[in-house]
């Protein structure tokens, strides 16, 4: 009887510990292994990515449809190459979709915003988004403003 209660308590303890671990993995952090086949990758070249980071959200009409996978530099064009992982269920983005790097609020995190075009053909895994708009650098705008004021 005594050993049975002990075994039951230990069993419950181990189950609770594993459940807590599962909750941390699934609810708190996005476990990559489970979701990797639910995405398809599209790349886009930007003149400047500003402070865009890995795993930043990819939004369309304000809805999150994916995340930034990888940011690298193209050695030939000296442009930033950004891989966007987009959820498989949104596989009907037109090929002339445009991408822009915007900021949430004035000083918030940067994210990639997609604007669908009118083409009848859809983006596939490995395709490239041609029309892009770089991140807006706040300090550049301020300095331009100051120079134009000084010119007057």
């Amino acid at each position: 009887m005594q050993t049975r209660t002990v075994e039951l308590a230990v069993g419950l303890f181990v189950v609770a510990g594993l459940a807590a671990l599962a909750m941390l993995a699934l609810k708190v952090g996005n476990m990559p292994m489970l979701g990797s086949d639910q995405y398809y990758a599209v790349s886009a070249d930007f003149g400047n990515v500003g402070s865009l980071k890995d795993k930043a959200p990819v939004m369309l009409a304000g809805v999150k449809i994916g995340q930034v996978g990888h940011i690298g530099l193209n050695r030939n064009t000296f442009e930033a190459e950004v891989t966007l992982d987009i959820q498989k269920k949104y596989n009907n983005l037109p090929t002339d979709t445009s991408a822009a790097i915007l900021t949430q609020g004035l000083l918030g995190e940067q994210f990639v915003s997609l604007e669908p075009g009118g083409s009848q053909r859809y983006l596939k895994n490995g395709d490239k988004i041609r029309i892009t708009q770089s991140a807006i650098m706040l300090d550049k705008i301020i300095s331009q403003l100051l120079y134009s004021k000084a010119g007057h």
Binding site: V14, G17, L18, A19, A20, L21, L24
Partner: peptide
């Protein structure tokens, strides 16, 4: 490790 996971959760 189990206790630590429970603590965090």
């Amino acid at each position: 490790p189990l206790l630590a996971a429970i603590f965090s959760a």
